[in-house]
Design a protein around this nucleic acid. Sequence first.
RNA 1: UGUCCUGUGGUGUAACUGGCAACACGUCUGAUUCUGGAUCAGAAGAGUCCAGGUUCGACCCCUGGCAGGACAACCA
Length: 569
Amino acid sequence: MTAEENKNATNGEENKPLNFIHTIVEDDIRTQKFGGRVHTRFPPEPNGYLHIGHAKSICLNFGTAAKYNGMCNLRFDDTNPTKEETEYVDSIKEDVHWLGFDWEGREFYASDYFDALYEFAVKLIKKSKAYVCDLTQEEMGTYRGTVTQPGKDSPFRTRSVEENLQLFEQMRNGAFHDGARVLRAKIDMGHNNMLMRDPILYRILHTDHHRTGDKWCIYPMYDFAHGQSDSIEGITHSICTLEFEVHRPLYEWFIKELEIYAPQQIEFSRLNLTYTVMSKRKLLSLVKEGIVNGWDDPRMPTICGLRRRGYTPESIRNFAEKIGIARRDQLIDVSLLEFCVREDLNKRSIRVMGVFNPLKVTITNYPEGQEELLEALNNPEDESMGTRKVPFGRELYIEQEDFMEEPPKKFFRLAPGAEVRLRYAYFMKCNEVVKDSNGKVIELKCTIDPASKGGNSPDGRKVKGTIHWVSAKHAIQAQARLYDRLFIKEDPEDAGEECDFKVNLNPESLIEQVCYIEPYLKDIKPMEKLQFERVGYFCVDNDSVPGKLVFNRTVTLKDSWAKISGKNE
RNA sequence: UGUCCUGUGGUGUAACUGGCAACACGUCUGAUUCUGGAUCAGAAGAGUCCAGGUUCGACCCCUGGCAGGACAACCA
C-alpha cells in the first residue's frame, strides 16, 4: 500500500466543513508552524485487540496525514512489559492494514527509544529536575495529596545530583527489587494538576520485554515516553483522546526541560456506541468468561469481530467520517453503524434466496417429478453482476412468516385465497392449509399461474407481495448464525447497584439455526458477502467448510413491515 | 466541594475574523419498485443549558450560575 492508497481510504470529499483538528492543521500549514509539515501517528498499546473506537482514531490520524500530504507512523506504546505481547502487535498491524491504511514502513516502538529515554532521564537528573525516591507505593499515595488538597514533598526530593545519578544507574543495573525505588520528576507537589505532583518517570520491573528481552529492568512510564517518542519521530500533531488532556502540561513540561523538538498534542472525544461496551477491560472479561467466542466473535465491537461479522473496511471508514471529530462526549447510535454497512453492502452484495423458518408448499398443478431452471438477477442494483439459474419444483419452502391464515389489513403476503409472486418464478395462490393435530400450519397447497413464469402475468394482473422461496428438492442446508446486539440496554452500564453490565446481556444475541439455501451457493468461500433477499446481509464464516456452510448475519434489512405490524398491535 | 474540559433538533456534526441555525442518521408523508429492500420527492423537528451584560446585531465576546465529563495506577 502507498500514500495514494491512504488517501483513497479517506474517501476524498473536498468541500465538507473541516473538523476542529483539520482547522488547526490548516492554520499551522498556513503559518508554517512546522515548516508546513504534517506528521501524525497512531500509537496503540499492544495489550489488546483494536476496536471500533480505535478505528475512529486510525481514520483520523492516517486520514489527516493523507489529506495534507503528510505521513502517519504506526507506533506501539510498549513501555509496560507486564501487559504487552507480540500477539497483539500482529493483530493490530493486520487490523490497520485491513482498514485500508499503511504506515509505509514506519513501524516504530516506544521501546526503540529506551536508550534515548534513559539519557533524557539522566539529563533531567543533572538539571536537578528529577530524583530517585524511596517512598513505598502507599506512602507516595499519601504524599500526593488529593484532588482538593495539595501534596507534600518527598523526603528524598533533596538528594544530590550525584547521589541521584548513582542510584538511577544502580536501578538500571538491577541492584534493587521491583518497587524499591522510582525516578520522579521534580515539579510541584502543590500543583492543581495531580499529574504535575512529581510524577514517576521510571519504575523497576524485572520483567522481560517482548522486544528488548532482559536488557532493561527499569521501564519508563507513559508520560515520560509518549511525548519524547513523538519528538524523536518529528510528529507535528499528536492526536489523542480527551482523557489525556490533563497530561498535556506534563507532556509540554518534559519537552521544554529536555529542550527538544515540540510536537503539538490535540485531544478529541472518544467514541461511545449504544448497546456496546468499549473498554478493553470489559471486552476482555467477555472473552475470558466465555460469554463470547473470542476477540473476533461477530458480536464484539473489535475490528476483527466486525470483520468476521461481515463489515467492510469502507463501511467502517465511512462511519468514522460521519460521526465527526469534536471535544464533547459522543454517544453514537449503533444504528448509524448499521446504516453504514447496509449502504455499502447494498451496492456490492449478490442477492440470493434462503429460507430460515421453512413452511412447505406443494404446488398442486405442477407435475410431479418436473423441475426447471429460472433465471434470477444477481444484483438488481448492478446489472453487471449477471444472472444465475434457480431450480424450481413442485415442492417448495417459503418463510413461515410470509403466510398468515388470518391476515391483518396491510399484509401483502400469502394467505388463504391470496396471490403472491414467487420471486423470479410464478404468481402463486394458496388454496388449502394443512395443519397438524395441534392446529399448527404445516403445509400449504397452492397453484401457480403457468402464464406468469418469470414473475409477470401477460394479462397485466398485479400482485402486491413478492416472497422468496427455495425448491425443497434442490435446497442445501446450511448453518445460520443470526447475530443481534450483545446488550438489551442502550447503556449496558445501567445495571443498578451491585450489578455489573453483564446483567444487560441480550440472551438472543446469537441464534443458531438451519437454513435452506439455493444450490448456487454450494461453493461459496469464507468471508464472501451476500444478501439473502428480504432477510438480511450475511457473510460466510471462517468455520465454513464445503458441504457444511456457515453464514453469519451481518445485519438485517430495513424492515418497514415490522414497523407497520408493530403499530397495529 | 479543588482544577481543567464540554454544553446547538431524538443522535452526531456544522455555521468564515459576531449578521437570527445547515448537513447526516432517525422519524413522518407521497411516488416508484418482481426484495414491505433500494431509489426519488417532500415534511415535521432546535431558536443554540440558564440568567444577566457588551453590541445596531451573539450559537459565537464578558460575568455569574447549572449540568455532564476528566484528574488522586510504580496502566496507557
